[in-house]
Design a protein around this nucleic acid. Sequence first.
RNA 1: GGAGAGCUGGCUGAGCGGCCGAAAGCGGCGGUCUUGAAAACCGUUGACCCGAAAGGGUCCGGGGGUUCGAAUCCCUCGCUCUCCGCCA
Length: 426
Amino acid sequence: MLDPKLLRGNLDSVVERLSIKKFNLDSDAFIQLEEKRKSLQVSTQNLQNERNSRSRAIGAAKAQGEDIQPLLDQVANLGEDLKKAESELADLQAELDQMLLGIPNIPHETVPAGDSEEENQEVLRWGEPPEFEFEPLDHIELGQNLGAMDFERAAKLSGSRFVTMSGSLVTLHRALIQFMINQHILEHGYTEVYVPYLVNESSLTGTGQLPKFKQDLFRIDSENHNLYLIPTAEVPVTNLVADSITEAADLPLKYVAHTPCFRSEAGSYGRDTRGMIRQHQFEKVELVQMVEPENSMQALEQLTGHAETILQLLGLAYRKVILCGGDLGFSSTKTYDLEVWLPGQKAYREISSCSNMTDFQARRMKARWRNPQNGKPELLHTLNGSGLAIGRTLIAIMENYQQADGSIKIPDPLHPYMNGITEIRA
RNA sequence: GGAGAGCUGGCUGAGCGGCCGAAAGCGGCGGUCUUGAAAACCGUUGACCCGAAAGGGUCCGGGGGUUCGAAUCCCUCGCUCUCCGCCA
């Protein structure tokens, strides 16, 4: 959520900066609601003031043993007027809040203009896409040839966009998780956390998935529960600091979590329908940081670097892009995507997305820290990034480390987690 | 699943329907003392909204009700804890 004060004071510039994100803020509607709110709030508060002072007078009179009946008669209609004003104000406030909750974060000044991912700005390329002396296969063929990956069986169990795997390929999948988490704990200073995979509406509102992106989520709607499957660990991990005040000495908080992620992919019919690129269920190792506001842009660079390190250690060629305004997520002020080279597609594909949410999520979830400068609670800045998406990393390893006979070589850093296996073959 | 207890400020915890935004302690901040620190002592210290300010308003788990007036009474939902049962 944006600072309502910012909207009231600098509406025109906010409208302009949001247009970079292709968001059209209806400033007339906002102004109208605001003016109504203001006058209603003033009149309601006047009524409340009157009630308070008259009630005090009655109390005082009663204590003196005076006859309070005349005083009671005077306030006969006050209650009703007040109740009406209060409920009107509450309705209006709710309407205003709904509007506020639907406005995205303001893009950072370094975010390039652009409509779609085509206009994302490349920052760097790392590594060389591997040369093959044979025609490289994609992960689907590789996986099926190894007898280790089966989409049809998964479809039988659950439908499209699911996969079953078996044998050493699954060990590799699990090894990736272990390797990444250990790297982040031991080398990058993160604390590992375990969190629920089912969360309530308020958590999802806190991080910005709700109310706007309900269609992207899986909901558990049973007799006694109204919960959602997490689309990313960002939701439970960031909400760890919801409704709390963190001491400055404890910052930055750096958390790493491995969780499954569940996405309905409602808006992506027909995209990446084959293979493991876009699934309803996938694993991810997620990095989350809570930092002092002035450090957040620097923290974004650092966090993105932590994700990049994983790709580098695995020897996977990638490029780093800054998302343009049109491709930038709802809650983010600036996002770097890391795109790994996939020989099967002869293209760079997203494998990590690292974002600075500034105070946008913190305001929604009331996540604050105590600023020692003035002793006052202020909003934190929150950041998150994949470090990395496991399914897509698995694909990248398969395609980049495939050999002429269809086997797959395991990169060195994963060996400690592979039970002695150095190659996966049929 | 059955029985009971509770939810109050950064934390612990008190709070006859009006004098309660809320005692007290801890913690924090400022000071005295000290070469410095600790201890001790003194002072200070909730969040949010409207307002240039004065000031006003809201907030004692959420929602609703009773009342001139609710942290306090009633209803309801949520959560936490204890005991019993069941159980990975």
